[in-house]
């Protein structure tokens, strides 16, 4: 029912597009965007609050998830249209089954910009785990096998010739708890979580992810196969609105070209979604700390995605026959190679 109505609307949109010969097509199309309460989803928050989605002809409703996995499944089932998440083994599997497609890039590591941190528990640190070189045989926390944590840990350790043990703990909260109590030795996480943890003294920052994985495409924008191939108008409209939000974010929070006042204003906007349970004064430093590059124009770093796919395949986590084309539809955005 829902799908057929959406398809009909798509046809109308397509017809309108033909008539106007312009990419701005749909009008107030109801669109559901999946999000998590993390700064890396700021592109969607800003695009919604500042009316960029509306300008692109979309009536966006945000739907929040506690983890990336259910969001990917919701997109596959058609309950959610667009989302942002790390390229995990689950996402690749869903893409292989023809359910989802990566259409753009979001969060990325960039040399010179404070990115994800490598952490060691206090006990492990005291025992000599002071850099990535000591990771061999250590217990590295991950949410699940095939998560971005698994990828980072494996790649970082491999860069120093080591192989850690990966301890699945399902939830970020559980990983933090295990790291604090010394049940695991190491972990990697975004700066706004890493820095307060290090400040508490229970854990130590022993490296930057970007030193080992420069230009790592951490999260991607993805949608259902149906939207990507059958409803290009909708997908383009979403990416347009999203990119406008991302551009504001990068200018203000990452490149700092708009001045401090604009930063304050944007922190206030993001605070509606991130750390909403804390007062603004307390949330602000974390939000600012968490400012990492979101790719302008939702550009895709194909080299990084290729590297990730190769790792997943080498680890036997996904089918070795999958090609990048199965997962990514790079026709919507610019691509970065290298």
């Amino acid at each position: 029912m829902k799908l057929s109505r959406r398809e009909t609307l798509g046809l109308i949109g397509g017809a309108a597009a033909l008539g106007l010969a312009s990419p701005a097509i749909a009008q107030n199309r109801k669109t559901v965007v999946g999000a998590m309460n993390l700064t890396s989803h700021s592109g969607s928050f800003i695009a919604l609050e500042r009316g960029y989605f509306e300008k692109a002809g979309l009536d966006v409703e945000l739907k929040f998830f506690q983890a990336a996995q259910p969001m990917a499944v919701a997109i596959a089932s058609g309950d959610v249209d667009f989302g942002v998440t790390a390229m995990s083994g689950g996402l690749i599997s869903l893409a292989q089954k023809g359910a989802v497609k990566v259409i753009g890039g979001a969060l990325a590591e960039e040399p010179g910009i404070d990115g994800q941190k490598l952490l060691a528990s206090d006990a492990a640190f005291q025992a000599g785990l002071t850099s990535a070189a000591g990771l061999d045989g250590k217990r590295f926390g991950v949410t699940t096998a095939g998560s971005s944590f698994h990828y980072m840990g494996s790649k970082i350790a491999a860069a120093e010739g080591g192989i850690p043990q990966f301890v699945p703990l399902q939830k970020v909260g559980a990983v933090i708890g295990a790291l604090k109590s010394g049940q695991i030795d190491a972990w990697s996480i975004v700066p706004h979580i890493a820095k307060p943890l290090a400040a508490s003294g229970a854990v130590h920052i022993i490296g930057n992810v970007s030193d080992f994985l420069p230009n790592y495409q951490v999260t991607t924008v993805f949608t259902s196969e149906k939207n990507a191939s059958g409803d290009k108008g909708l997908t383009e409209a979403f990416l347009k609105g999203f990119s406008d939000g991302v551009a504001d974010y990068d200018d203000t929070m990452v490149d700092r070209t708009n001045g401090d006042e604009a930063v304050d204003e944007m922190v206030k906007l993001i605070h509606n979604y991130v750390y909403a349970d804390r007062p603004l004064e307390k949330a602000a430093p974390s939000i600012i700390n968490g400012s990492m590059r979101l790719n302008r124009g939702a550009a895709l770093n194909m080299a990084s995605l290729g590297d990730q796919l190769a790792w997943f395949q080498a680890e036997g986590l996904v089918d070795s026959a999958i090609t990048l084309d199965t997962i990514v539809d790079a026709s919507f955005v610019e691509t970065i190679d290298g």
């Binding site: 990917a72 083994g89 689950g90 599997s93 949410t143 095939g146 990966f166 699945p168 986590l317």
Partner: peptide, 17 residues
């Protein structure tokens, strides 16, 4: 924290879809 075991195997399969 389980790397091996039928339960861990199922959970891993679930997260990899």
């Amino acid at each position: 924290g389980a790397q091996y075991g039928i339960g861990a195997y199922i959970l891993e399969a679930g997260s990899l879809y």
